[in-house]
Design a protein around this nucleic acid. Sequence first.
RNA 1: GCGAAAGUGGCGGAAUUGGCAGACGCGCUGGACUUAGGAUCCAGUGGGCAACCGUGGGGGUUCGAGUCCCCCCUUUCGCACCA
Length: 819
Amino acid sequence: MNQKYEFAEIEAKWRNIWAGQKADKAVHDPNKKKFYLLEMFPYPSGRIHMGHVRNYAIGDLLGRFYRMNGYNVLHPMGWDAFGLPAENAAIERGTHPHKWTLQNISAMREQIKALGVGYDWDREIATCHPGYYKWTQWFFLQFMKKGIAYRKKTFVNWCGKCHTVLANEQVEDGACWRCDTHVVQKEMVGWFLKITDYAEELLADLELLAGKWPDRVLTMQKNWIGKSVGAKVKFAVDGASESIEVFTTRPDTLFGAMFVCLAPEHELTKKLSAGGTEEAKVAEFLKTVAKQDTLARTSEDAEKLGVFTGRYAVNPMNGEKIPVWSANFILAEYGTGAIMSVPAHDTRDFAFAKKYNLPIRRVVLQEGEDEKAPLESAYSGDGLLVSSGNFTGMNNREAVPKINEFLKTAGAGEGSTVYRLRDWGISRQRYWGSPIPVIHCHKCGVVPVPEKDLPVVLPTDANLLSEGRSPLPELESFLNVQCPRCGADAKRETDTMDTFICSSWYYHRYTSPRCESAPALREEIDYWMPVDKYIGGIEHAILHLLYARFFNKFCRDIGLLKADEPFSNLLTQGMVIKDGAKMSKSKGNVVDPDDILRRYGADTARVFILFAAPPERDLEWDDSGIEGSHRFVTRVYRLFAKWIPELRDFKGGGDAPDAELRRMRHVTIKRFTLDVRDRTHFNTAIAAGMELLNFLADYAPKNDDDKAELKGTLLDYLKVLHPFMPFLTQELYSEFGYGEYLTTVKWPEYSEAFTVSDVQTIVVQVMGKVRAKLEVPVGTPEEEIKKLALVQEKVVQAIGSGTVKKIIVVPGRLLNIVF
RNA sequence: GCGAAAGUGGCGGAAUUGGCAGACGCGCUGGACUUAGGAUCCAGUGGGCAACCGUGGGGGUUCGAGUCCCCCCUUUCGCACCA
């Protein structure tokens, strides 16, 4: 065999062979236990970057590992192919998003193939393909049927640069998640999905994921859903027919409510002040608030501003008339958009009352406190109720259900739960996305496109407009259509769907990617789902992962599948950074994967990336580190080049080989198995591989038994290394005379008994400090070890004239002499 | 401000249950081979001359602490008027 490691040749050779054999094809087989492995599919931006390489290297390693361990592995790849960058790039370059996207897909597919990732390419999907988005649209129709998709006019997040609306999840610190442009509020009509119908289940089922998803992600989702338990209470407006409904988490403090506060956007703010003494002041106030930036207005340290509306509300508990205010810190979209203010027991209300000189009344007291004593700050803790009518004297927490009951009887409210989660705004005023399949008819109103007419094809001949606006509203051939209900002239909806919809169900589609009768075949989807390991970046902690969970639950509810949760296990990989910063063109610290592959080959690139850090941690790219990994891969090659000619045809040998060689063999298999399967820490597995290499490099067999053991060790070594460096190991396996695809070869087993040496080192400590080490045969009696330890020169010295009080023994490891 | 995670040699990182801190690799030093070395191989490499000292700092528990407890510092991330 070639003495030199020609990685380019080796990798090209096996890439072709595997592709020709469709070696990584996944086939539904109910008799085999399945393993669905998935990396978050990429946006086809044009080139892969190191983050992708890391993502796929981790995925491929696990895919091959589980296959070798007897699982039927589904490991697919596809493209999140709709989205804004395609449009922007197309405008810039004078091409078309469709063409640009398809070109990018071909280029990136080649790059990924070069990495040697064992995907089942027959299952490749692209969300911009009509065969795919037909079903995206179909889902929209199902949502409509169930009343989950609806249209409303409301204030939405508008990104001026992207020229489109954004969902709440897509706004980060008041800026567009994609381009960082400051988001403004704009009132417009759009489509929404009632994800809030699933708020409780999305929250509760996080329990099912505990321990299997990173805690960080679970916490983020929990906070995002933001459940609050409390009560809704109606305050009648004095001298008016309206009443104000407020939400509070503290119905126990109702008797301390000194005023009511409306959000400026609340319809009653204008209505109640109209014609009253405060009308002008309220109007002025609303103008000021309108000018305030949303982000600034809702930040904690923003100045609290308010205005009296001139009206009074009646507290249903005690009939007390309290003033109605409007305040800038009240959010129209949370709860009911109105609150009752209890300055004594809420920090914000306290500050507000102080500022506008409003009264404060304590209704929850700690033991021994004086009700009349002035408050320095709000007390939000527990205690006994005072000044609370029939509830006076009760423990505040115990009073809550009783007060709720009273409210209900009085018709003034009831216990209630609200969520911070808002409905998902999915209309996008852009072109390169899936059309929303509805038609607007003068007579019939909004009419869904009949399922048989799907897909509503996105025309690929549209001329893009330079300012980014969608060409669809001006494209007559797309726009004009007959109403499917009455046949009259009608117009198509020109908004497209948020691309997060496309990515909310792609993992279902992989299970039967060419199915034409449904999004996926029931028996396929129920066999493969849920995804057993999902690998991707933490940046989707809320966005994609929340949307996908919602979609999956909806799919379950309409009878498409049975899994409650789509992703049983989530691995969030860290970023690839260089010089302490995320790789980016603007920082000029980008390492091009192609360049690395050309210089070192895919096996080296993978080994480096897996070795440099455990997967969830950020990985610091290091040019000399990759040299080191290349050295390791090359040394592996040379080791085999040395032994294969001699061992290839060697047969025979007995079962009494060199114990140390045998121990190294079993220890290595054990470490690989546990590190990959249980810990998903690949860096330590590679370290074990390096240790075995260091051992084998100096090893010389003394007899045929040793030779047989060495051959077995080398073959096992190839197997455990295979998921890390598939090309090289396959080449060496074949040089050894074996024909099979290594990924289909059984993962080696280790014997616990062979992992232990027959001598062991016992550390001898005196008062916790290491003074000596003893080499003793396994099974040496404790008494004998103690005796030996006590005569060690260093031990005698350390004890000096002291008397030994006790000796602590950790069997097989350590001995601590206390005096 | 609140919450979470992290802090270990010059660097990336090991130490799985409280039991030899620094595995493995990078880098560095010296050597071998060589016309040459940015190839390869060998040896060494936490600090200190030593006793000893060392896992962000300070206390504690324990025969024994990187690991457990308390206080503090730093970094990263998340949340941040949510009634």
